[in-house]
Structure formats: structure tokens, C-alpha cells
Write a protein that binds this DNA or RNA. Structure first.
Lengths: 329, 329
DNA sequence: TTGTAGGCGTTATCAT
DNA sequence: ATGATAACGCCTACAA
């Protein structure tokens, strides 16, 4: 393996000089820069990121914490895009990434988790799909031991940013569109995890809408479960004009139930997953660009690692209907 | 951060002694082992794997190479299970993992790829879902610069193992079952990527079956594309008794086409993905335990890193029908 | 502006 | 059986 030492020798300068050039320090003459860069080229030198990570605590090792729910593989799509977007952006930014799953820490303490991350020389973490029930992770962010970016939540402090779409507005938008299109009055709203961060925001959006349009609304907690949403719909569906769901999976459960009941009610979902195209009936939904969100999260983490303060970053969304013909290829 | 040095001091021994205890070297007295382990406990010491990786080339850093096809997110399920199974097993075995995607190396040379992996101190790699067209990866395995495990292929050499189910038998089994159940004679077989490793094996299984049962068979290349399978079925479906597909996605495409054509033909798939439950019509398919396969792959890589020779590892499979009711939760 | 040298936390090779 | 000590490859004061 060709090391910085070889480059230094080849270029006729000191090791530290090479390091400075590589890390774009000021106070290096154009001339030596060129010498060094040529040596790098000629030797095909690629810096060893492991050594870099060991040497400086600043080095960008990043952990992805993914909330992988084994039971609903249908939404692996979302996590996969999260992972993909993050890793690709990380490569661009020259950050090293390790991927971890919530389940790995289910019965570990906060301290253990922190020690594990430290043993991996992790400087920053991104948490995907955290809910209120994942209290270790909430505490992890609040401990501020690491730079931290969270999607779909709203913890913000000096070392923590949140990235994601405006759930309140998005939920409002998609529900309004569906309701107006179908001229509905009585809304059955199947919400997500109780006490989830985004669940609260979405509910807020619904309440605004209800007030504004003078609707009536029944709220049931579907726990992000397709089955629960199905059962709720079987029980209450016929008494309402529209079923608004805070996730596509629940929307699918609701729609399948309605089809079985042989009654028509418009249903709208939330997320924009491909699976929506396989259900037969089209529904309005909110398309989030998950890969984009996680790329933005990585970018934001990069900023935090560079010393910037935590903040809230809003990402764009759009309203769509997903058709089978559009998604197959 | 508490380091090996602290442990040494706390236990009243030398650093190297601690290291020996931690890595289960022989020639350490019971007494000192106990002393050291107590110190480890008391200080909550967790070894820094980055430093270990830097110090010893043996250290187990592993790269996952995943073939992520952005266009067919429906099968992210498979890759997600691969990733999950591998990472969980790696944690068990104390191996560090980084995840990479084929797309990152699309227009890079083999040498660049090797250098990149070396710069990450990677000792072993697992390649998921490689096809013949990914020639860089084939060369990567053949270069033997790293210990290597491959799923769904069959490169085996001193430093390379292959892990996966017996595609020839599995394809034979699922097709036979479907054909016998429906008493078919004329088979339309939609195969996968031309020249893919597993595609060849599956075709072999079909040819055996055709000969054995005295069937006639037309083989069309569906390129693992739902759309292509759909079009093939639209064109040829009616002239055959059964449509055998070498992937679930293609089976779904075929089934949807048949439903549109309003004719019934049994269809069978391959992989056992959840999406099969959303199509409405049940089909026979081969269920592979992808997480199990990748766990086995990681285990095998661990063996290779420990000095064992490459080999072929067969994993189990089963024939199933996936029903909507079974998969929702 | 450039170079020297110490350190990051381990592992591994020697002596002892 | 145990302990110094030199790597591993890089970063970064600090000195020149």
C-alpha cells in the first residue's frame, strides 16, 4: 500500500507538508502543492481513512441508525433509499459510514451505546425514522456527545439538526386535495404512532383543515400498521366519506378493506412508496424523496462536523398518484 | 475515552498483556486474565476497532457490495435483508462493516476499486446479487486481493466462497409443483439476465424438467424486468399452459398481464418477496431466506479471514404461496 | 513556508 | 508468562 510517506519521498517534501496539501491547509506554496499533487497522481495514492480517523477526532466517521422493522418489509424501500442517499453523499463528502439498526441496541443502555459509538471513532450520527418510543435515541441526541441529524423529528440543539418535510403542511395538503376532489364532509383519520413526532405534526395539519373546511373528523390510531388500519376501516369505514391515512401502508390496508367491503371511499396515503402502484386503486399520497432527505441529512451532518450549529432543514415534497404503469420497468 | 492503557494501569500489567488477554492469546496465566477482565469491567472498556484495524492487517474490516437497482425499488426488500443479515452477523463476530453500492464503481477501473478498498483497510468483501455483466466484480474476486464471498454466483478459489441456494433444483422444484398441480404441457419460461450465473443454473433445472416430463418449452429472456415479462406474456401467454418466471417481479408482471388479458394461466415465481402478497392471485414461488444467506456469507467470510479455503455453501429454500393475509401486520 | 516530532489506540515482535 | 517497544498511517502543534 502506498502511503503518505511514499508520496512525501516522491515529491521531495516532508510528510506533514503532504498532509497539509491533502487537507487543503493554507500556507502552502503553489509550487509544493503542484509537486505533491503530481506525486499523488503518479503513485495513485489514496489516503487511508482508518488511519485518519484514528489520528484526528475530527475525522468524519458517521453512523447511520436505521429503524428497521422486520415485520413490514414492504417499506424496506424507504430505509433502502435512506441508506443509499446517505452513503452516496458521504462518499462525495469523503466521510466514512457505518450502518447500524435500532434493534441492535434494544436492550442496551445509553452509556453502552455511547461507548460503542466511541469505540468506532464515530463523530456524527444520523437517525432515520425515530419515534418517541425510541427513548434511548432521543437521549442520545440530547446527550450531545456526537453531532447528530434526525429525520422526521424535531430535536434541535447546538449539535443536533432535524431534516425532513413539513409534515403539518403536507398532511394538510394531501387531505385537502382528496377531500375537495370528492366533496367529503366526514373524515376518518388513521394516524401513526401515538406520540410520534411526525404523528403530532400531521394531526395538527388535519385539525387545521377540519376547522377551515368545517368538517367532522374521527381520529383512530393505526400504529403504522397495515392490519390495524384495515381493521379500523372495516369497523368504521362505512360511516365516513373519506379515509385519510398517515402512511401509505395504512392507506393500502384501508383500501383493501374497502374493496372487500365493496364500498367506495376515497383514501389518501403518505410517503409515496412504490407499493401503492400494486393495489389496483389509485390514491393521492405525499411523495417524499427519501434519498434526497438523507443526502440532505448527510450534508447537514457535514456542516455540523465543521462547526455549524444545529437547525431545522425543510425538504420539498409533492402530491402524487402512483400508477402501476408508471412504476414498472 | 478509556483506552487499553488505562486498563493496563488499572490492572497493574503491561499494555501488551491486556492486548493478549483481549485477543485470547495463549500463554497468559489465569490470574492475570482475571485481573485484566476485572479492570475491563470496572472501566467499561470497549476496544477501539479503528485502532485495531490500523494496527493489524488481519483486523476484520469487511465491505458489503450491494447491487442496488434504483428502478426496481420493489425488491429493495431483498437487498435490505441482505444488508441486515450481514451487519447483524458481523456485529456478533466483531467485524466492522462498510456498505457500498455497485453504482459507485460503474465507471471506475478495477485498480481504483482495489485501491479504494485498501484505503479503507478492507480485508474481506461480500458481493450481493452480482451478474455476469458486472465484470469488474468478477475480476475483483478473481484478483484474490481480498477474501471474498459471493451470493448467487459460483466463483470459488482459494480466497473466494460462494453462498446460496441450489438454483437448479429450486427452479426445477417450483416449476414441477406448478406444472403437476395444473397438469400443464406447454411451458413459457421467462428467464433472467442473459449470462447471469443463476440464470444459467435455473435454465438447467427447467431443461431437466422438460425432458423428464416430456414437456415443450419456449424460453424468453425477461431481463428480470417486470415490464418485459409483462410484454412477453401479453404476446405469448395465451399459447402456453403455464408461465414460469425466474423472479417474483417478472411473475407479477406476467400475472398482471394475464389478468388484463382475462385468461387464466398458472404462474410461478422465484424469491419469495412480500410484494407477491399484494397481487391478488397467489402463485407458487421459491422462498429464499436472504437474511440467512447473508449471515451465512458473513460467517463464511469470517472463516476465510481465519485462513480457511474458499468453497461452495448451499443454503436451504422452500416452496411457498404468499397470501395477503399472511404478510400484513 | 516547511520540517520535526509526538501522539491517536492497537497489535506484534522481541527480549526478559 | 510478562513487558518494552516498534510499527500501522495519518494529523498537528511547534520549531526552524
Amino acid at each position: 500500500m502506498v502511503s503518505i510517506k511514499d508520496v512525501a519521498r516522491h515529491a521531495g517534501v516532508a510528510i506533514s507538508t503532504v498532509s497539509k496539501v491533502l487537507n487543503r491547509y493554507p500556507n502552502v506554496s503553489e509550487e509544493t502543492k503542484i509537486k505533491v499533487n503530481r506525486a499523488v497522481e503518479e503513485l495513485n495514492f489514496v489516503p487511508n481513512s482508518v488511519a485518519a480517523a484514528l489520528s484526528s477526532k475530527q475525522a468524519g466517521r458517521v453512523a447511520l441508525l436505521v429503524n428497521l422493522n422486520i415485520k413490514t418489509q414492504a417499506i424496506d424501500e424507504i430505509n433502502m433509499q435512506y441508506i443509499q442517499g446517505a452513503i452516496n453523499k458521504a462518499m462525495e463528502l469523503n466521510l466514512d459510514v457505518i450502518t447500524l439498526f435500532f434493534s441492535m441496541f434494544k436492550d442496551r443502555s445509553l452509556e453502552e451505546l455511547i461507548r460503542y459509538l466511541q469505540s468506532q471513532s464515530i463523530a456524527g450520527i444520523i437517525i432515520f425514522g425515530m419515534g418517541r418510543e425510541d427513548d434511548i435515541l432521543v437521549k442520545l441526541a440530547e446527550s450531545q456527545k456526537f453531532k447528530c441529524v434526525i429525520t422526521d423529528a424535531s430535536i434541535v440543539n447546538e449539535n443536533t439538526s432535524s431534516v425532513g418535510i413539513d409534515h403539518c403542511r403536507a398532511q394538510y395538503d394531501v387531505a385537502r386535495k382528496t377531500i375537495v376532489e370528492n366533496n367529503c364532509k366526514r373524515v376518518l383519520y388513521i394516524s401513526g404512532q401515538k406520540d410520534g413526532y411526525s404523528a403530532r405534526e400531521k394531526l395538527l395539519g388535519m385539525e387545521q383543515l377540519v376547522e377551515e373546511m368545517k368538517l367532522t373528523m374521527k381520529v383512530k390510531n393505526g400504529g403504522l400498521s397495515e392490519l390495524l388500519a384495515r381493521n379500523i376501516t372495516l369497523e368504521y369505514g362505512e360511516y365516513y366519506d373519506v379515509v385519510v391515512c398517515s402512511s401509505d401502508l395504512m392507506a393500502i390496508g384501508a383500501m383493501k378493506a374497502l374493496i372487500e367491503m365493496d364500498i367506495f371511499r376515497p383514501v389518501c396515503g403518505y410517503d409515496g412508496i412504490i407499493l401503492m402502484g400494486y393495489v389496483g386503486k389509485q390514491m393521492n399520497t405525499v411523495r417524499q424523496d427519501f434519498a434526497g432527505i438523507s443526502a440532505a441529512a448527510m450534508e447537514e451532518l457535514h456542516q455540523l462536523l465543521g462547526g455549524k450549529e444545529g437547525r431545522r432543514v425543510k425538504t420539498p415534497y409533492s402530491l402524487v398518484r402512483i400508477k402501476y404503469k408508471d412504476i414498472i420497468c
